[in-house]
Design a protein around this nucleic acid. Structure first.
Lengths: 210, 210
DNA sequence: ATACTACGGTAACATATGTTACATTGGAAA
DNA sequence: TTTCCAATGTAACATATGTTACCGTAGTAT
């Protein structure tokens, strides 16, 4: 029995399902900053996240990108769900933010379990629900917040998912994820530092208040 | 048998399910511009859209609002799905754009049918998939497009769902849905008119090229 | 030590969007 | 018709954000 499977999912899935997952799933360990899914990819199996953090990006035709949300322990990718079922291409990019451990589940099991296990149905619907809410929160940020507020929210979100109040990124990397420019990020970070909310250092930022 | 149910869903649901829906669903006819769901509402039944168009809005704490997407014939509200299942509050507002006919399905049937009907499972998952893609398209618009492009896209979307290349709205109403100001909308509409893309009239706008 | 490069700070300017104010007009109501 | 008001047009200005350019500094490679 894969230990992380039992630890993370024993309250989510009934025992029979845990055993089935244990039998058919493939365990994968993936390093930091690795591209798992690219836009346009066909997906043949569904990932269950055991540990680590995955970033989900949206990209337009000019190559401009935008961070949508983070996936954490216990999450799965809703896009993958519907891609598996609907045989459609991925509309997002997935990149590991940290080292990641996950289980890959063959697509044909997904449909089988939907009929068989109540807890699997609840899990799948719940995943969709959470993902939908996260994308809507992203809409809120872009539509209703100024860039300095978005920036602070971004830093706090990143600190939360990585369990670390130091963010190890260059201003340029942050600019890409928020779809703005490095100069703007530097300018607003300096403003946040002057307000006493963060501390700036080369290659990392410390959140003073969480 | 409700005629619109058979007409719209005969290729989506198996016959036994159509019959069950026909028995337990409540038929509703709702006038234009009627608020169906408010943010914070608990939802006790799930709507199946038979005809007409529904607008889905997001709102922030200051009361600023933003149009997320339109629901058309054959759609259902994904938020309602998860609210029904998870017993959580609505995160969105739903307002009829036109007169609307819909079927209300009691929440306990939803779970029952998930176990029983393959076509119901496919429908529910498909709805989530579509809604997720629509919200992501909204993210694209806000994040990657200038206001004039968003405005034109809005007009085209509205023309598409209402099957009418005349949009009957004031500039103020459009401004609310795009979360900008009336002056900005008037300014950009005039620009689009000068470019030959639309024709402006009091209370309605005609799309020249679709 | 020296040279090189990535990173960050900042000024100066460009542009898109938001705001205020006021004028004009079309159509409804009296 | 006359009156009135909602809808629209537009100027002038304010602000947020994007862009270009250039500089200093810290760390790395030689």
């Amino acid at each position: 029995m894969i230990q992380e499977l039992k630890d993370n999912y024993k309250d989510v899935f009934e025992e029979g399902l845990i055993n089935e997952i244990n039998q058919v799933a493939t365990f994968k360990e993936i390093p930091e900053n690795f591209k798992i899914i690219e836009i346009g990819d066909y997906i043949k199996s569904m990932p269950l996240l055991l540990s680590g953090v995955i970033k989900i990006f949206r990209e337009d035709t000019n190559g401009d990108e935008l961070l949508l949300y983070f996936l954490e322990n216990g999450d799965t990718c809703a896009m993958t769900l519907s891609c598996c079922i609907g045989q459609s291409k991925s509309e997002i990019r997935a990149v590991t933010e940290t080292q990641v451990k996950l289980l890959m589940i063959p697509v044909q099991k997904m449909e089988e379990w939907m009929a068989k296990y109540t807890s699997w149905r609840a899990f799948v619907l719940n995943s969709y629900h959470n993902r939908l809410n996260e994308v809507m929160e992203t809409v809120d940020s872009i539509a209703f917040l100024k860039m300095d507020e978005r920036l602070l929210k971004y830093l706090k979100d990143k600190a939360r998912v990585t369990h670390n109040n130091s963010i190890h990124n260059t201003h340029q990397e942050i600019a890409y994820e928020l779809h703005t420019s490095r100069v703007v990020v530097s300018r607003l970070l300096k403003k946040l530092e002057n307000m006493g909310k963060i501390e700036l250092n080369r290659n990392h930022i410390r959140l003073v208040e969480l």
